[in-house]
Amino acid sequence: MDSSNTCSIARGPARTALEFSAFGGPRPDFIAVSWPTAPGGVIRDELQRPELLHFAPDRWLAPGPTAQVSALLRAAADTGAGVLVDATGKWVELLIAGPGAARLLASAIAVEAVLDRRGCAAVTLFDCPAILARQNDDFVLWVQASYAADFIATAERFRAMLRSGA
């Protein structure tokens, strides 16, 4: 067994999730100072956990928003520049942690290239739509809920294969 290839896959808690969609056009005035505007931009809490992810043009995901983030999003919606949609249950949060996390994800995608100079990316991992971000030395991802069971099953198969040093 090669310890450099070990990692764990853990399901995060079920939380409220909000998606914000802007209507596009010129740079809207809803944008607060802390708002992530660059493609793949992320704002994080003090533990480096993503709080607001800019995962697609005009689209942001707030997985488990704090009161502060909720207020930020509501204020943005109130400007009329976009809308807030309650997407609770759409995404399943997974934490892939350990020294082998990057290698496990590399079974599905060129992780480094995809997250090159950005905090998060919308991706398809083992055919499952997901939003991927770094979290300290680990990875956190939100997989669309109906795909989650299959994602975990495939990831676990690769994890076992890598652990056995294939």
Binding site: A17, E19, S21, A22, F23, D58, G80, G82, V83, V85, D86, A87, T88, G89, K90, W91, Q144, A145, S146
Partner: peptide, 11 residues
Amino acid sequence: HRVSVTDVTEA
């Protein structure tokens, strides 16, 4: 136009 489309099938 000021309209958005969000997939909430799984929500």
